[in-house]
Structure formats: C-alpha cells, structure tokens
C-alpha cells in the first residue's frame, strides 16, 4: 500500500462518512456543511484519478457555487428563530431498504462478477489534460458544449423568472 492508496482511502473514508452523516443528522445546516466536506474529498479523489482539472472544477462549481446556493436557499426557506434547523424523516423503511439493496447488488457485481479486463492495458494518458480537454471541447464535443451553454442560459433565465416576485392575480 503506497502513499497514493493511503490518501485515496483517506479521502474515500471522508467522502462516505460525511455522506452518511448527511443521512443521519437532523440538523439541516450541518448536513449542508457535511456535503461540502464530502464534495471536497470527492475533488481529492478526482485529483488522485489523474483528473485534476475536474477536481478543481468540482471545487469551483460544487463547493464554491452550488453549496453556497444551497445555504442561501436554506436561509430563504426557513424562519430564523434561534433554534437549530431540524428536519424529520419519512418513508424510513423503504428508503433504507432500497439504498441497502441497491448498494449490495451493485457492489456484488463489481467485486465478484464484473470483468474489466479490457481496461487493463496500460495506455498513457495525455500529458497536458487541460489542453486536451480544451481542444476536444472545441472540436469533437462542440455540440454538447454549445448545448450546455444554452442550457446554462436557459437555467439562468428560468431561475430568475421563477423566483421573481409576482403580483397577486386578485389585485
């Protein structure tokens, strides 16, 4: 077990444990910050998987963007009265059962049945991943790239329209 693997296990443990924390905690705010921790270590996993660009993107968009948005949403949808924000659970049995079954089936498949022989050939990854991704986004993946751009624009306008203050119809 070299140090790369050790760090990987470390990040993996943080990811899974904090995700479990989200599941078990009842304090909504703690859940949000645990999610931040989870995303952060997922970014670490990306970096270990030779995808440092995606790792940094994860940090920038998820942790710096979406999570802050979540906390803001939380502030806007609760009454602040000094008490801790707690939430309740429902469908507990179905949820846990489904999750466990899903997890066990998939992990069984991965560990015992799946065959990834094709991937074992050691091909060299591109030297400069950023350059590679950039060139590919502008050539091979141009249409998805543009569609993603349009999607973002549509989401921006849509979010603005939805959350806009509308006058009541009665007036």
């Amino acid at each position: 077990m070299n140090w790369m693997t050790t760090i990987f296990y470390f990040f993996g443990a943080i990811t899974v444990l904090s995700a479990l924390g989200i599941l078990f905690t009842r304090n909504v705010l703690h859940a949000t910050f645990l999610l931040m921790l989870s995303f952060f270590s997922v970014a670490g996993i990306y970096v270990l998987g030779n995808a440092s660009f995606i790792g940094v993107t994860q940090l920038l968009i998820y942790v710096g963007g979406i999570l802050i948005l979540m906390v803001f949403g939380l502030m806007l949808t609760t009454k602040l009265n000094g008490k801790a924000l707690v939430t309740e659970n429902h469908n507990r049995l179905i949820g846990v059962l489904l999750g466990t079954v899903f997890f066990s089936i998939l992990s069984y498949i991965i560990i015992f049945s799946a065959n990834f022989e094709m991937l074992k050939s050691n091909k060299t990854l591109p030297e400069n991943a950023v350059e590679f991704i950039g060139i590919n986004l502008m050539s091979n993946y141009l249409i998805p790239f543009e569609i993603a751009a349009i999607l973002l624009l549509v989401a921006l306008i849509g979010a603005a329209v939805i959350s806009e203050k509308r006058k009541e119809k009665q007036e």
Binding site: S52, F53, V56, T57, L59, L60, V63, G64, G65, I68
Partner: peptide
C-alpha cells in the same frame, strides 16, 4: 498543481465564503 494553477487558486479562494457563512 502547476497545470491548473490559476484555476485552482480561483476555486479554493471561493471556499472562504463557506467559512464566512459558518
């Protein structure tokens, strides 16, 4: 992290927002 230097910097600095909110 030389390949993504600036990008990483912009990302990690935006994290202090989380601390401020906390």
């Amino acid at each position: 992290l030389t390949q993504n230097g600036v990008y990483f910097l912009l990302a990690i600095v935006s994290l202090d927002v989380v601390g401020i909110l906390m």
